[in-house]
Design a protein around this nucleic acid. Structure first.
Length: 426
RNA sequence: GCGGAUAUGGUGAAGCGGUUAACACACCGGUUUGUGGCACCGGCAUACGUGGGUUCGAUCCCCACUAUCCGCCCCA
């Protein structure tokens, strides 16, 4: 019997995993500059954590969550996104307490699960790197979060980026707009696509995001949220826009942009890339926004928040081909059983001095071993045969120059660093 | 959930009713004694996704299933 991985999952093999490590290293470096600290939360939570936060009518909750009942009869769900769990942890651990500096800034990275049809840059188990900042309402934080997103993506080498922002306003703005939108769309109800008809009653804002052509024509004349903002909401949005301009971040305001999670309000944003790897159009690689009511929704005190998440798989597509194999300091060629045994001893001694070294374990001929050394990118090849065993030496060959010298084994065992340095420098 | 395409060895890829199922790459070995390249020679046998048909005969035709890839929806 043979098995295959579940649909929409991937094995990250050596080579690929190198790239992942690079991504994580870069992310850590940039996040540290912004004083974000890592938080790790469970891969599964009580299903309510997600349904309460993302919204009962959101597609993610209604048709994409991996839910299951545990042996204790509790309904659980694999996390479809990162924010809900972080907010839950924030509340549960009372991170809103006075002893914690505000804003409380954290980041996370890890797998998320959504039951969807896999395609390019989309999987059922996928990875996100995200940030959340709690406890500050200032538009300065919105702008900083967007600047952080930009820094991150540029550090990853992402090209052809496009920043789109919008505002959903505060609850008051939203309620007024909600009503205006329903009033506008209701006469067109019969003309709307089936999906949009459902959205009209459950979540009218989502109609704006419809990809149906006729829907788009109707929506084009719909009232805009920007016309229904309260003075406070308007001021916040203007503040964010001013700051982005000051920071030299080019963006467009997309008044029809809506997010898939219901918890957002005020600023929302998306960053897309038109890199050729995405085959033509713009693909969203990062999305986020402000969620001022979410902490309360999950049982905490009134606390504002902002954050974003980026899709690591999509990022990976961008980074393909930018990897270079690390050179191997040394490879030991051993001729004969006795020499092979001695080679392991040498290898261990070299490793103990902090260097990577490889050797042959198949008893192959010297020629084949050299071939492997060459393929592995070995800088030095140490050859060990009967005569060297007897003399207590080893032949050291610089693979770059082809020069070979005889060196005492004790030198290799105790001063490999010096040996390596000298040979490589010549 | 809907639509399209594809499934041949480690990889890429021919064949399209009867073949020893090409070829290339990779890998392994050899070309006389312990040295990376090239060349030449040789070896690479759980390879036609699974299950049903049609046929004297199916890798090749039909059906179903499964999987993969791409698109839609949605999203990161």
């Amino acid at each position: 019997m043979s098995y295959q991985r579940p649909k929409g999952t991937a094995d990250i093999l050596p080579g690929q995993s190198q790239l992942w490590q690079q991504v994580e290293a870069i992310a850590r470096r940039v996040l540290d500059q912004y004083r974000y600290q890592e938080i790790r939360t469970p891969l599964f939570e009580n299903v309510e954590v997600f349904s309460r936060s993302a919204g009962d009518t959101s597609d993610i909750v209604t048709k994409e969550m991996y839910t299951f009942e545990d042996k204790g009869g509790r309904m659980m769900a694999l996390r479809p996104e990162g924010t809900a769990g972080v907010v839950r942890a924030y509340v549960e651990n009372k991170l809103y307490g006075p002893e914690f500096q505000k804003p409380y800034k954290v980041w996370y990275a890890g797998p998320m699960f959504r039951y969807e049809r896999p395609q390019s840059g989309r999987q059922r188990e996928f990875h996100q790197i995200g940030v959340e900042a709690f406890g500050a309402t200032s538009p300065v934080l919105d702008a900083e979060v967007i600047a952080l997103a930009k820094d991150l993506l540029e550090a990853f080498g992402a090209t052809k980026l496009k920043f789109a922002i919008n505002t959903l306003g505060d609850p008051e703005s939203r309620a007024a707009y909600h009503q205006a939108l329903v009033d506008f769309l209701t006469p067109f109800q019969a003309e709307l696509s089936a999906d949009s008809q459902v959205r009209l009653t459950k979540n009218p804002l989502r109609v704006l995001d419809s990809k149906d052509k006729h829907d788009q024509e109707i929506v084009a004349n719909a009232p805009k949220i920007l016309d229904y903002l309260t003075p406070a909401a308007q001021a916040h949005f203007d503040g964010v826009r001013d700051l982005l301009t000051k920071l030299g971040i080019e963006y467009v305001v997309d008044a029809d942009m809506v997010r898939g999670l219901d918890y957002y309000n005020h600023t929302i944003f998306e960053i897309m890339s038109a890199d050729p790897v995405f085959g033509g159009g713009y693909t969203t690689i990062l999305g986020g926004g402000r969620y001022n009511g979410l902490v309360e929704e999950l049982g905490g005190p009134e606390t504002p928040g902002v954050g974003f998440a980026m899709g690591v798989e999509r990022l990976m597509l961008l980074m393909q081909g930018k990897q270079n194999a690390a050179a191997l300091p040394a490879y030991i060629v051993a001729i004969g059983d006795a020499a092979t045994a001695q080679a392991l001893e040498l290898a261990q001694a070299i490793r103990a001095q902090g260097f990577a070294v490889d050797m042959d374990y198949l008893g192959r001929k010297p020629k084949a071993q050299f071939k492997s050394a060459n393929k592995a990118g070995a800088r030095l090849v140490l050859t060990l045969g009967d005569s060297e065993l007897e003399a207590g030496t080893v032949e050291v060959k610089d693979m770059a120059t082809g020069e070979q010298t005889s060196v005492a084994q004790t030198v290799v065992k105790t001063q490999f660093a010096t040996l390596y340095q000298e040979t490589v420098e010549d």
